[in-house]
């Protein structure tokens, strides 16, 4: 199977990057290639970077409460750019009912505080197996 490439980004103004850096290190240690784009990324920057990097996954960490603005913005842009097979997932302080709403618009799992890095690694590996393949 191809190397799994995951783009990790922190959208919005929030600078709390402890979680995303722990995840970055854990994914690396699980043999994945992690593209870290840094803080304060706008949705269009994230989508453009994910496309150029041909990441299979975009993981976003949002702790500021702006998740209902930022996740949909990225999901929408992925569709517009013809990159909807990039799997979007995330983590942060996101109430269950919001996570359910996000799922409806095509966002994958939202990991909340207390999730282990192992759960996230397993989730990515399992999802990667089911990602669609396209023809030349």
């Amino acid at each position: 199977m191809d190397k799994i490439r995951v783009l990790l980004a922190k959208p919005g103004l929030d600078g709390h990057d402890r979680g995303i850096k722990v995840i970055a290190a854990a994914l690396r240690d699980a043999g994945m290639e992690v593209i870290y784009t840094g803080l304060r990324q706008t949705p269009d920057k994230i989508v453009s970077a994910a496309i150029q990097e041909d990441a299979q996954f975009i993981g976003m960490s949002i702790l500021s409460g702006a998740h209902m603005t930022l996740f949909p913005a990225v999901a929408k842009l992925l569709k517009e750019k013809g990159a909807e097979n990039i799997h979007l997932f995330g983590g942060g302080i996101v109430p269950d009912q919001d996570a359910a709403k996000l799922e409806e618009i095509g966002v994958g799992r939202i990991f909340t505080p207390g999730a282990t890095t192992e759960e996230i690694v397993t989730y990515i590996r399992d999802t990667a197996r089911d990602l669609p393949e396209e023809t030349l």
Partner: peptide
């Protein structure tokens, strides 16, 4: 570089180039 122990890698060069991503 790829980590010789895990085969994974942290690619962070885009941080410095983010103003070019659009």
């Amino acid at each position: 570089p790829t980590s010789p122990f895990t085969g994974g890698a942290l690619l962070g060069d885009r941080i410095r180039m983010q103003d070019l991503s659009l």
